[in-house]
């Protein structure tokens, strides 16, 4: 990317500012976010670059980056940002845009985990950790990863066999439906 000529486009920044609620345009690239980020060692774009790329409209690079999925949402960046920009929220907006556009996530396991987690809530209103992990493993094929750890936790009564559910599931489902019924 760096070798190519970049023609800035203001389109993406408007979309992402609205979706994330973050004042992306304020960033003046002080790099404090990247200085404090605990997972830069696993990222392809540094956090300050995510903000700059949004400003420049480099959408394809962003949607294909590992960084937006790698972010642990620890919020160290916004705690230190002199302009009050929450990069985790920007990453969330970019993750949602990636899936909405049908782009393959650069870290598919992370996307699969979040989807398994939300599916687990959708059914009964609460997460069933064991069921969610099995669904995640089926989806990613990571059948043997952490099996010993899972057994240790199970032996100590840390994993419930059966899910818990809400009594008033109708009201919970009605609220969940609001996403589709509302203006979004």
């Amino acid at each position: 990317m760096a070798a190519q000529q970049v023609i800035p486009s203001p389109r993406l920044v408007l979309v992402i500012e609205k979706a994330s609620g973050q004042p992306v345009s304020r960033c003046y690239q002080c790099h404090k976010c990247t200085g404090g980020c605990p997972v830069t060692g696993f990222m392809d774009l540094m956090p300050h670059q995510v903000v700059r790329y949004v400003q420049l409209g480099l959408e394809e690079d962003l949607l294909k980056s590992k960084t937006i999925w790698q972010c642990a949402a620890c919020r160290t960046c916004i705690s230190r940002c002199p302009n009050g920009i929450d990069i985790a929220a920007i990453n969330d907006a970019l993750k949602q845009r990636t899936l909405a556009r049908g782009v393959q996530p650069a870290l598919p396991a992370v996307a699969a985990f979040h989807q398994a987690f939300l599916n687990s809530i959708k059914g009964k209103g609460r997460v069933h950790e064991l069921g969610m992990m099995i669904a995640f493993k089926m989806k990613t094929g990571s059948y043997f990863q952490d099996v010993l750890l899972g057994l240790q936790m199970f032996r100590r009564g840390k994993l419930r066999l059966l899910p818990e559910g809400l009594k008033n599931r109708e009201r919970f489902r009605a609220l969940w439906q609001g996403e589709k019924e509302g203006q979004r």
Binding site: A73, Q96, H114, Q115, I121, G178
Partner: peptide
Amino acid sequence: ATSGHSLNSYL
């Protein structure tokens, strides 16, 4: 939790 805000702002 994290999955909620990652994939679905409404939820």
